[in-house]
Simulated assay, not measured.
Amino acid sequence: MSTPMTPPKPHLWLVGAGPGDPDLLTLKGAKVLAQAQLVLYDSLVHRDILDLAHPNATLICVGKRAGQTSTPQVLIHDWIGRGAQQGLRIVRLKGGDPMVFGRAGEELQFAEQLSLGWTYVPGISCGTSLAGLAGIPLTLRGVASSAWLGTATGQDGRLTADLLAALNTSSTLVVFMGRRRIRDIAQHLVQLGKSDTPIAVVSEGSLAQQQCVIHSAKVWLTSEVESLPDPALLVIGEVVHHQLTPTTTNLRSITPSFTHEYEVPHLPETRKSHVQRLRRV
């Protein structure tokens, strides 16, 4: 008499895709994608990262974008529930780090309601990386000893109380989803007597088309910001005055005699023909 087959055990991986550049995905994130059967990904995830998913995986975009049609959270939960019922290995792939304005808590609570096992795979947060990629340190001795991360707008449509309070400190402020509110933020700084405070807008950070535009609060009141595309992040504070200019390099151009190149055996097979490699200096 044959033994009944044990049904596959579903699992949810919450994976951070990083700030945009596919090279900034973690090795663990790539390994998880290689085993995925269902990938629910945000609209900001780079196509090259999706190419790392298992060739037979089902890929579904469940993105949310400001000013555009967004996927309701209840529908995302529905997809997770369907995948769990089918015993699938589910990857919820989010830009940046899922635990920072990624609604990770809601989705993990839903998984626990289903008694669905889950694993968190951190990603490089936009909040901590994009300033640096634009040459701006978040903290600097003698200038700023703390950094504040937050969103611009509350559920009531106004600037959040936390942001208004933070603007009256010497902390560096990193503001998510703040490009459309930059004039309101600048106006509040002017009212606080901080009209010379620099504000940087980092647009499409980490990608080849990254832009960084810097003006003082009083200048932003009349400056054009609509032409800067989303996603965009604001960096506010005296550290912006200490911006440095990063040097762009192509890793493949590094002199071979000073490098070691080796295959990474646990990276997934992709839909591309080239072999994935790491180059270590």
Rank of each mutant, 00 (worst) to 15 (best):
L192S: 07
K194G: 02
S195N: 12
P198V: 03
P198N: 06
P198T: 02
P198F: 04
I199T: 01
I199F: 14
A200L: 11
A200Y: 08
A200Q: 14
V201I: 15
V201S: 10
E204R: 15
G205A: 06
L207R: 10
A208T: 12
Q209F: 04
Q210N: 11
Q210T: 05
Q210R: 12
Q210P: 04
Q210C: 10
Q211L: 13
V213T: 12
V213S: 04
V213H: 08
I214T: 07
H215E: 04
H215V: 03
S216A: 13
A217P: 01
K218W: 09
K218Q: 14
V219C: 05
V219F: 04
W220P: 03
T222W: 05
S223F: 04
E224D: 14
V225C: 13
V225Y: 15
E226I: 11
E226A: 15
S227N: 06
L228P: 01
P229N: 04
A232T: 13
L233F: 05
L233H: 06
L234R: 05
V235C: 11
I236T: 01
G237Q: 02
E238G: 02
E238A: 09
E238N: 11
V239C: 02
V239I: 10
V239N: 00
V240S: 03
V240W: 01
L244W: 06
T245S: 08
T245M: 10
T245E: 11
